[in-house]
Design a binder for these strands. Sequence first.
DNA 1: TGCGCTCTTGGACATTCGTTCAACAAGGCA
DNA 2: TGCCTTGTTGAACGAATGTCCAAGAGCGCA
Lengths: 239, 239
Amino acid sequence: MKAPRARGSAAVGSARALAAPESAAGTRPRFERQLPAQRRAALIAATIECLKRYGHDGLSIRTISAQAGVSVGLINHHFPNKDELVAAAYRHFNRELVEGLQAAVARADKTPAARLRAFLTASFSPPNLDADVLAVWVVFWGMYRHSRLIQRVQRETYADYVRLVHNMLADLPGGAAGTRARRARRLDLRLAAIGLTALIDGLWLEWCLEPGRFRPREAVALCEGWVEGLRRRAGGALE
Amino acid sequence: MKAPRARGSAAVGSARALAAPESAAGTRPRFERQLPAQRRAALIAATIECLKRYGHDGLSIRTISAQAGVSVGLINHHFPNKDELVAAAYRHFNRELVEGLQAAVARADKTPAARLRAFLTASFSPPNLDADVLAVWVVFWGMYRHSRLIQRVQRETYADYVRLVHNMLADLPGGAAGTRARRARRLDLRLAAIGLTALIDGLWLEWCLEPGRFRPREAVALCEGWVEGLRRRAGGALE
DNA sequence: TGCGCTCTTGGACATTCGTTCAACAAGGCA
DNA sequence: TGCCTTGTTGAACGAATGTCCAAGAGCGCA
């Protein structure tokens, strides 16, 4: 299934198509100049939208420029090449996820349990829990092994996510270890963060591959159950 | 990063390159005819190999045929089109995973705990736990939303995997519920299978995105810890 | 008002893509 | 031995790809 060519440019979201062609002498501008930062943002948004709609096939200069309501040449004026645009889109996508989760946690009550619940609920709600959104992730992951750019962005942004999860677990009752069990507990925390992250990602994946199999609330419950089980075993080494 | 063109065809694994060009009148066959089933299998193997080496870019008729040591036209003689070849490769990949896991379980001791451990160990060992292998999965997942063929194969093969996990959990001590708690327990089993699958998939993903963060044994321990936590809560509804 | 910076256009380019097909030839069978 | 089935080749096709660049024009500034 290929992305449509969209001749004449539907120009979704562009001001271009708002009015009918001028009748009188009024010479309406044929395009609107924008500041580089704005245009770059629009191109990044168009890239993600194309990825949502057409998957990997949507990653073509012509599809993206049509989606942005812009000519083919413009992309290479704002980005040195396609790979840089894709990497920028990946960075944006990552940042928006992490910032959204951070905001959800910040809005919650100050108790660790409430913060965790807010985090999980946000993870399993729109806009994150959307089959289109996960499809976008998966396309990016598919590039990971063979694109240095994608690898770099991953390193840059993933650390924030891991830190968020890690801190949330550390704040849980029993999470602040005394000096004595400090070392064993830190091992636990490391593995716990890894496990929780994996559980969340895996549930994401499963839900999107087959949304009917369970409901978002059940995913939250599963994660909370996991954390609960962790706390019960607290102090003991995992292996 | 594009896949190389390989003019003259290195013909990896083909009998073609075994001997030097004939000097005397010996007219060595220019190619070897094979049964359709064999050739199809070779093309599927070449497809997966290309996916491992070059990611999504490896999915081109020319790259695959070069990898198989075969001409471009042959692929369309054995498969109606490229999508069917890719779907066949996905089916093969799925089947090999599931059958490998089933075999590992079958080889293990008959106790449920040993079977579970064998399953987990196999899940987090080569050839499954390989960054290349997961990269292949991720490319397939990236096609899922937009390819009916891939969706169909997914439905066909995923059920076996889920059943395997489900049965293993059901066999655990405490898994065989009495008639009284039957219904509540079945809810638990369903969610437990979902959760364990998600945990395994997520750990896969994490390990391959950053293999240094934890060791395969730790992944096994995390999964066993999860199952242990489940059994401790056995009988109670999860929410 | 008009100049000029630079954002924007869109045609042109060389490649690569998936698919087709006429011709070739391997190898079993009579 | 020679025929015949059919697996196999590789050139050719049109479509689509990413990039380039000369020309055009929006809009701030003098």
